[in-house]
Design a binder for these strands. Structure first.
Length: 577
RNA sequence: CGGGACGUAGCGCAGCUCGGUAGCGCACUUGCUUCGGGAGCAAGGGGUCGCUGGUUCAAAUCCAGUCGUCCCGACCA
């Protein structure tokens, strides 16, 4: 492909709407453009990369025995009314009417359609198991689309659905998909892990999320360095073996401490010269049952998800400052667990209950209280694990050391059981001639999100650095001086010869200065680059640059250059020096 | 949906406090020179200042509303 004939609107400067590195690069390298919030055009370059990524997914799905199809993006709302998810999905389901005034929606997912399809066409256990998949659009009217393709309203997803005669069959289908996912993400070069998850909107009995580690991931997960235990920060537990504040900060009896203007644990700890672990901090939340106080150690954070569960509430958010003042009788920053007005529940973390001698707010301006003991000085209603795991905590399984990492969820696999088949009355005849509901599983990969995550994880200061298998082009030929016949002639020759070997090649024939062209190639991140300039002609040597590792190789003749390029193009991930 | 910020040329921004001729860099067009890491000189083109209304002799600038984009929170691939 000639650069001059391709459409690559690259940007020199960071667009202001992007925050994330990968989002900036997607825009700068001319991979995508936003049409409206959460709605994107894939430009030729991004589209080419996307297709390569899809092919990898397709290969592994096919290998696992899944069969590809394509379902309608526009769906009659009736089918959603039947499954009851019309209401469940709420505003995320974008609805509209056709000219006959019938209700339709844009597909946020495809369980209804696939279940209906299989119900109408599969009658016997002899036709099972069956796994169908598609790579296709979904639309969810997200309340807040953000970070480019990471959370878009319209997005591309690979979704697969398995149909089995019984649970044992489902286990097999599930395992096959799980293995396919492992293959896909290994081929892409990701460092990843499956994490058990709560099923959410899709529902079902068991599900795992495929998480890829990345500093900027929106999800937080906990890993054990020793036994491999892993869980979402909302589910993860750590050993509670804390035996209370240090000797040095224990007071023999309840003592009021003067702490002028010191509100945060940080400030009070510095002011009193007492370790943060000696504090019990009291946070007031507003919920549908009234105010709830959550108490954890001073150096800890409350996990609101856990607190919700422990308190048995659905909605929970930090109380407004005015409410905190009313409830505690003191300005924000001096809350303690005793003498609270109008608090329905006091929930304390296990660690707090394990011990005494706590320093807490005194519910009085500019004062804290030492030697506060649960059950003597205040009555906890619930004792539970409501703290977030921190790096260094002990693993509940093996007492190894836990670490907390950010990750991006790229896949989610579910055992659905008969959730949809029973609602939609999808049955087949088993060997005994009895009707049974299909036992289903469903398996998703966010394809657009995966592309962006590849860029997030694999990029350097100069630009994108994708694995060879998903880079939009494998090799670039850059003609530095388009005014020189010798250079142009040689560039054309190399371009057409490499093309004849079936190489996916971008030939930069633009009449621009050398710097601009080289920067663009680096930004797009083409793994291998052949630069033709005066030097090439003068020295009769051919230079091949490898982006990963910033390596330059020089060849004395075209045959050996071609041989090397062909060899390199077969690398699946990155060329490793 | 709650909280915050921003909308001025294709892109990135200044101008707005204190109302009076719309500006800078990059990009673009033409010519000449240059040609291994975002070239130089010369000449040029391009903006209803997001939109609507109000105040005013006069609005990019002040006021109100509205739309859009982004960030933080509750949800998710």
């Amino acid at each position: 492909m000639r650069y001059s004939k391709f459409f690559i609107p690259s940007l020199k400067e960071d667009p202001k709407e992007a925050v994330l590195k990968s989002h900036k690069l997607l825009l700068r390298a001319g991979f995508v453009r936003q049409l409206s919030g959460g709605i994107y055009t894939y430009l030729p370059l991004g589209f080419k990369s996307l297709k390569k990524l899809e092919d990898i997914i397709r290969q592994e799905m096919n290998l696992a025995g899944a069969v590809e199809l394509s379902m309608p993006f526009v769906q009659p709302l009736d089918i959603w009314r039947q499954s009851g998810r019309d209401e469940d999905y709420g505003k995320e389901l974008l609805r509209f009417k056709d000219r006959q005034d019938r209700d339709f929606c844009l597909a946020p997912t495809y369980e209804e359609v696939i279940t209906d399809l299989v119900k109408r066409n599969i009658k016997s256990y002899k036709e099972l198991p069956l796994t169908l998949y598609q790579i296709h659009l979904k639309f969810r009217d997200e309340m807040r689309p953000r970070f480019g393709l990471m959370r878009a309203k319209e997005f591309i997803m690979k979704d697969a659905y398995s149909f089995d005669a019984d649970d044992a069959g489902l286990d097999k289908s599930y395992k096959a998909m799980r293995k396919a996912y492992e293959n896909i993400f290994k081929r892409l070069g990701f460092s990843f892990k499956f994490i058990k998850a709560e099923a959410g909107e899709i529902g079902g009995s068991y599900s795992e999320e495929l998480m890829v580690f990345s500093e900027y991931g929106e999800d937080t997960i906990v890993l054990c360095d020793n036994c491999g235990y892993s869980a979402s920060i909302d589910d993860a537990n750590s050993v509670s073996d804390y035996h209370g504040p240090l000797e040095s900060c224990r007071q023999p009896k309840m003592t009021k401490l003067f702490t002028p203007d010191k509100k945060s644990v940080e400030d009070v700890s510095a002011y009193l010269k007492v370790d943060k672990t000696c504090f019990a901090k009291t946070i007031i939340y507003e919920t549908e049952i009234g105010f709830v106080a959550g108490i954890v150690r001073g150096d800890r954070e409350i996990n609101e998800h856990k607190l919700k569960k422990a308190a048995g509430v659905k909605n929970l958010f930090l109380a407004k400052e005015a409410d905190v003042e009313r409830v505690t009788g003191a300005p924000c920053g001096f809350a303690g667990p005793f003498g609270l007005n109008d608090v329905r529940l006091i929930v304390i973390d296990e660690e707090i209950n394990n011990s005494e001698y706590w320093i807490t707010g005194a519910n009085e301006k500019d004062a804290h209280m030492a030697n506060v003991k649960p059950e003597r000085d205040f009555m906890p209603d619930v004792v539970a694990n409501i703290r977030s795991v921190q790096t260094g905590d002990k693993c509940v399984r093996c007492s190894g050391s836990l670490s907390v990492k950010n990750a991006i969820e790229l896949g989610h696999i579910f055992k659905l059981g008969d959730k949809y088949s029973s609602i939609l009355d999808a049955k087949f005849l088993d060997e005994k001639g009895e009707f049974k509901f299909f036992v289903m599983g469903c398996y998703g990969i966010g394809v657009g999100r995966t592309l962006q995550t590849l860029i997030e994880v694999f990029s350097d200061e100069s630009g994108i650095n994708l694995p060879v298998s998903v880079s939009p082009f494998t090799v670039a030929v850059v003609s530095l001086n388009t005014g020189d016949e010798g250079i142009v002639g040689l560039s054309e020759k190399i371009y057409s010869e490499l093309k004849s070997f079936g190489m996916d090649i971008l030939y930069d024939d633009r009449k621009l200065s050398a710097g601009v062209k080289l920067k663009d190639i680096d930004l797009i991140g083409i793994p291998f680059k052949i630069v033709i300039g005066n030097r090439t002609i003068k020295d009769k040597k051919y230079e091949l640059s490898i982006k990963n590792g910033n390596i330059k190789e020089v060849y004395g003749n075209l045959e050996s250059l071609y041989k090397r390029v062909i060899e390199l193009s077969k690398v699946e991930g990155f060329f490793e020096p």
